[in-house]
Amino acid sequence: MGCMLILGATSDIARAVARRFAGEGWRLILAARSTASLLRLSTDIQVRTGREVVSVSFDVLDINSHKDFWGNLPECPDAVFCAVGYLGDQKLAESDFSEVQRIVLINYLGILSILNLAAMAFEKNRKGLIIGVSSVAGERGRQSNYFYGSAKAGFTAYLSGLRNRLSPASVQVLTVQPGFVMTAMTQNMKLPPLLTAQPDEVAEDILRATQKGKDVIYTKWFWRYIICLVRLIPEKLFKRLKL
């Protein structure tokens, strides 16, 4: 197994993915802003696997630092998993543009900046794996979260284009479209239990998808069909729904 860089490593999905992939024998480089939580997670995985885990500080907002960040990694990773995400405050964003900037910077621009560096390296090596966690919120804009949703829509399109570009270089690009997941991000929402995945389930789905060489996965799987139905609602009707 190779080496995987995990961006946004302290998110719940990333934590589950880190543990799952470490269990499969991957070497990990954990990257996130909060060093205290990083240390807690890297210690956890070291004790779990008995292997060393590297952790590095990474700030997605500090775009100018990304080149150095990538250049200073202890080794060139074979895979990048990006779980960076920020739901933001929709209401605030409607009146305060700085919140919009923050949402777009974290969920879109910042991620593109670092993934571009990975893409270049992987294209040159003619191998690699890029996994991006997008969101079903990006599949159709809704009044409750369209700033976040539109940034994720952009990210989904980016991953699709990247996949198209890197396919000849045999680099796998996997788009992960989670529906509801029980995480810190959603802890104040009332989620329907049957539609909601645990981070561990998402991690398991991602592991399987990488093994099978998939391009896009929905997790839980039935979200593919839910989204299909949501897309089918005519705009005339959709615009009147309270979603």
């Binding site: 719940d12 807690r40 997670l41 210690t43 956890d44 004790v47 779990r48």
Partner: peptide, 9 residues
């Protein structure tokens, strides 16, 4: 349940 980290073995 989210405080599920190992610390030392």
């Amino acid at each position: 349940i989210y405080c599920d980290h190992l610390i030392d073995f």
